[in-house]
Each structure stands twice: as structure tokens, then as C-alpha cells.
């Protein structure tokens, strides 16, 4: 039997992704038995994050102020915009590419069957930035899914109609992979996108 307070804690922990009733109960008991200090700092951190983190008014990623650190960094190239689907894509690109321009985070992709249209992914804000005349290249780094491709195409038309250069990241065989085990779609993309040597 759980007391009402513990019951509420277990129910609250279940909002985390991948946490069912059993794991939630384990977490709740662990925190109460072993790590009450940790529980307090978790509660504080959650409270603070929810109160202070909003969206960057420029690129829509998470930010604690008006602008995110990348948008407010004057050393980044403001004329190049890389378009991604989620904030975790920004992290992935920052980690491994050395890209020095700025980002625009769609927070999703166009998906008519889910009712997600252009206004839901912030294309109005993007159109405004393109019209400013400060942008010289747009890099489309949406996911290589059907919806991601449709989104990339939709945005590429927007960008091209304004006479701005637009590029799409390449899709290909993973490093260290073996062709035999690569799925057919990736292989055909890689083959069609081959380059001169």
C-alpha cells in the first residue's frame, strides 16, 4: 500500500518518457530511501527550468533569455542558417561538424496527416528573416524521412523564390559501415549523390 503522497509522486514520475508504473515506483522509493538531497535538487532544477526556459525569438530553440547562446554570439556567421527539426539536432551538429553559422529549429516537420502545417513549424518567422536580406545560404538538415524531405522541399521553394542559395545535407553510407548491410534507400541515395574524385 502506498500513501497518497507517494502515490502522487509515482503518478508524477510517469510523465517521463519510458517510465511505467513499476519504474516510477522504483524511482520514488529510491529517492525517498536513499537520496532525499538529490530529490530536492531535482525538484528545484525542474521548477527552475520550467520557469526560466523559453524559446529563442530568432531560431525557436530552447533559450533562457530573449536569444539562445548561438544566436547571441556575435562571432557566428549570421548569414548562414541551418534548418533542423529539433534542439537535439542542434547539439548533434554542434558536436561534430564545426559549423559556424546559426540555426533555425522547426520543432517538428510538416505532416498533413498529423495536422502539422507550415505555421506550426514557424515558417512565418523564417520567411521574415529571409526577407531581411541578411541571409546568403540556407542549409536544410531535416531528417531523411518522407516528412523531412517534404519539409525540406517546401522550405527550399520558399528560399529559392527569394533568390537565396539553398543546400541539402548529403545522405550516404555510414563511416565504417559495409555496403552489404546498408539499407537499400540509403545506398541508392549515396549512389545517386556520388561525387567526382
Amino acid at each position: 500500500m502506498t500513501t497518497p503522497v507517494i502515490g502522487r509522486l509515482i503518478e508524477a514520475l510517469r510523465c517521463l518518457p519510458g517510465v511505467g508504473p513499476k519504474s516510477a515506483q522504483r524511482m520514488a522509493y529510491y529517492l525517498l530511501e536513499r537520496d532525499r538531497q538529490g530529490a530536492l535538487s531535482l525538484a528545484g532544477a525542474l521548477q527552475e527550468a520550467v520557469e526560466k526556459v523559453g524559446h529563442c525569438s530568432r531560431c525557436r530553440t530552447f533559450a533562457e533569455g530573449e536569444l539562445c547562446p548561438i544566436c547571441s554570439n556575435s562571432r557566428r556567421d549570421q548569414a548562414t542558417i541551418c534548418i533542423v527539426e529539433s534542439p537535439s539536432d542542434v547539439q548533434a551538429l554542434e558536436h561534430s561538424t564545426g559549423y559556424s553559422g546559426r540555426y533555425f529549429v522547426l520543432m517538428g516537420h510538416l505532416s498533413p496527416l498529423d495536422g502539422i502545417g507550415p505555421e506550426d513549424i514557424g515558417l512565418e518567422l523564417l520567411a521574415g528573416q529571409l526577407d531581411n536580406g541578411e541571409v546568403s545560404e540556407v542549409i536544410l538538415a531535416t531528417n531523411p524521412t518522407v516528412e523531412g524531405e517534404a519539409t525540406a522541399h517546401y522550405i527550399s521553394e520558399m528560399v529559392r523564390s527569394r533568390g537565396i542559395r539553398v543546400t541539402r545535407i548529403a545522405h550516404g553510407v555510414p563511416l565504417g559501415g559495409e555496403l552489404e548491410y546498408v539499407d537499400g534507400g540509403t545506398l541508392s541515395h549515396a549512389f545517386n549523390g556520388r561525387q567526382d574524385m
Binding site: G117, P118, E124, E157, M158, S161, R162
Partner: peptide, 8 residues
């Protein structure tokens, strides 16, 4: 909506 975002 495409026509509103694209400058044709």
C-alpha cells in the same frame, strides 16, 4: 499555404 510563403 505554399503561395503565401513563396514569393511568386
Amino acid at each position: 499555404a505554399r503561395n503565401t510563403y513563396t514569393k511568386r
